[in-house]
């Protein structure tokens, strides 16, 4: 009998403090495995955001820096330009990346900074207790839209990959999900590619990961998986939106149209 899987060296061996079912743990493991498999752990610097994954600095087994809310890509720019030989990644949630940090996101992509951005989209603010996010769906309840998000009061949700796909500097954009084991494997392939792009000097790469937040959605983890397929994926279709070699690609799964 052989052990099939093990704790990746890219992740500190300690229990994760996230809520039961939270998708951060899955993506943390994926990133930890990529750092190990690509042999880049010892030259990688990660950026932890503000939000639930503020704890990321405890978990990733590489040099880490925690910065102000939303400023991850700017901090990454400073690190990468000072130490081009390092692999720099920013790990951000939807509030951090698409709300307060939208300017940094857009402009680091426009400059095509040679960095990797991991973007966790769970359509809600987690750490602060379930407020509306820029990616909260129309009709979805949140603690600052208790009667459900409306276009009239709150506007439309933002599709980050589609938005960034307009920018020439955004070289690799893919939206993935973690709601089944097969999707987790695909998400890992995308994240690995995003790191490989940086190693190859190809410029700005961002992988969006649809992720569940049972606590703030008010659902069980199993109900949350259904929410991803039934509610999130029609709004946020999975697929590759840009690659370094080709221009915009098309959504491959889940699109409403």
């Amino acid at each position: 009998m052989q052990q099939v899987n093990k704790w990746p060296s890219g992740l500190v061996n300690k229990p994760l403090r996230y809520c039961p079912g939270c998708g951060h743990g899955i993506v943390h493991r994926i990133v930890g495995e990529c750092l190990e498999e690509l042999g880049i752990r010892e030259r990688t610097v990660g950026i932890a955001p503000v939000g639930c994954s503020v704890f990321a600095d405890e978990y990733f087994n590489c040099d880490m820096i925690q910065g102000p809310h939303g400023r991850g890509p700017a901090i990454a720019t400073g690190i990468k330009r000072s130490k081009p030989e390092c692999i720099v990644f920013s790990y951000q949630g939807d509030g951090d990346l698409a709300s307060i940090g939208m300017a940094e996101t857009v402009h680091s992509a426009a400059r095509s900074e040679n960095i990797t951005v991991i973007f966790i989209n769970n359509a809600i603010y987690g750490m602060t207790g379930g407020q509306m996010a820029p990616t909260t769906l129309i009709g979805q309840q949140a603690s600052t839209c208790p009667r459900g998000r409306t276009v009239q009061a709150n506007g439309y949700p933002i599709r980050v990959c589609e938005l960034l796909a307009q920018l020439e500097g955004a070289r690799y954009l893919e939206r993935t999900s973690t709601h089944t084991a097969a999707h987790v494997i695909k998400a890992k392939k995308a994240i690995r590619q995003a790191f490989q792009n940086q190693i190859d000097g190809k410029g700005f790469s961002l992988v969006e990961v649809l992720s569940i937040c049972p606590t703030n959605w008010g659902l069980t983890p199993l109900q949350s998986l259904k929410f991803v397929t039934e509610k999130m994926m029609p709004m946020y279709p999975l697929g590759v939106f840009r690659t370094p070699d080709a221009a915009a690609g098309a959504a491959t799964e889940g699109g409403a149209a």
Binding site: G129, Q131, S143, T144, C145, P146, R147
Partner: peptide, 9 residues
């Protein structure tokens, strides 16, 4: 957070 949450409704 309870301030904006309260205000929102």
């Amino acid at each position: 957070n309870e301030v904006p949450e309260y205000m929102s409704w």
